[in-house]
Design a protein around this nucleic acid. Sequence first.
RNA 1: GUGGGUAUAGCUCAACUGGUUAGAGUGCCAGAUUGUGGAUCUGGAGGUCGUGGGUUCGACUCCCACUAUCCACCCCA
Length: 423
Amino acid sequence: MKVTLPKGTKDILPDEMIGWRFVENTFYQICINSGYGEIRTPVFEYTNLFNRGVGDTTDIVQKEMYTFNDKGGRSLTLRPEGTAGVARSFIEKGMASLPQPVKLFYMITAYRYENVQKGRYREFNQLGAEIFGAAGPVADVEVISLLNNFFSKLGLDKLSLEINSIGCPGCRNAYNVKLKEYYSDRIDGMCADCKRRFDTNPLRLIDCKNESCIAASLDAPLMLDNLCGECASHFSGVKAGLDSLDIKYTVNPRIVRGLDYYTKTVFEFVSENVGTQGTVCGGGRYDGLVESLGGSGTPGIGFSLGVERLFMELESNNIITGDKLVPEIYFVTIGEKAYAYARKLSCALRRAGVYTEMDLLGRSVKAQMKDADRKNARYVLVVGDDEIRQNKAQIKIMETGELKDVSLDSIYKRILEKKVQVV
RNA sequence: GUGGGUAUAGCUCAACUGGUUAGAGUGCCAGAUUGUGGAUCUGGAGGUCGUGGGUUCGACUCCCACUAUCCACCCCA
């Protein structure tokens, strides 16, 4: 084998694509119905967008970006996530002067240089949506309800929603001081990572999975108990909104998102079927992002959803079964005249929206029948030069094996009436 | 970046403690009375045994390296 897939990438083959279409179409419909406009931004952006947007201290920026110089010496980076590019577009295209709020959604690939494991790839697909310019908790609720609609339309009811608030810069700074105070006499017994976090990002200390660190964190003060008045009332607004929609959730005070731009509400949809990477969807509010990228102060909230992880969940619930599309009519032909006739009929049917099949290899009748069977065709229309002369053809109903004579004229007429049912 | 498992036909897997032309199932192609599928039977195509070294009279089998893949840590979708 000489040519292979790059590590961490995959081919999505035709059978699987049917499921992908199902997921993407469902997402598209829900977003459109909810007033979101679709946006496409470039796969690569100038590197500094992510440095500033995602945050210099994050793992993503520090070690996971595909960064390269183009021939003009510009530093470019394959997007490691979707929000930064959309925020850039919001600013650059002057969307702040559109009627507010601006609601956008997208279906993209993203790239992170990480070691591969279950539910984690280097190129992966995300569905995402963002609301810019709406500061109140109703926007948070709308984004979550969009996801709730999406999951229920897919037939998924086993994802659990966890929410938290990580406050605004104001209350977080005060909280960080408190945290450092709490950890100052315990940090010696904690892991190397945590010792580093103590200075760079103390918020992450309570999130560490290392056993001794978990023990040290048991009595740590929680952000949730230290929110300022504004953040606290925002969070209760979110909870009240979810309650009124009967959306179930649990408050998980230990959720911390890995991207620097999050403020106030953060949330995750978690699955038990995805392996250790259980987060199917993560999102939250980012009221400071647009401003930090040079735009005017604009609140925002959004999410991104890992399609590969969603698929694992769908498959383990038997929602994606890999069913193939089956042809309505398979034309079995004998002879050139019959082939030409059937080809014309087949084209007309395809234009009318009917899936038809024909042999392209000049195979025997038997082999054509076998092919029709293999493709699970509902009907086979057998046309030979004899039939052309007599202006009729045989239709075989594959499920029962029943044969019927039909006149070619009537078939053509039925097609013109756009009737799918030919028998 | 770190740790562990795996690597044989398109796919799923065999090959005894190293021994001759590496097998099966499935899938694919063709045939079993000449213009009709699914069952059965027969035949055919398809493998530099992940790559490169080494040990040996002899390596799919043992050793080393590399690569890929899977799983886990970190972190995230």
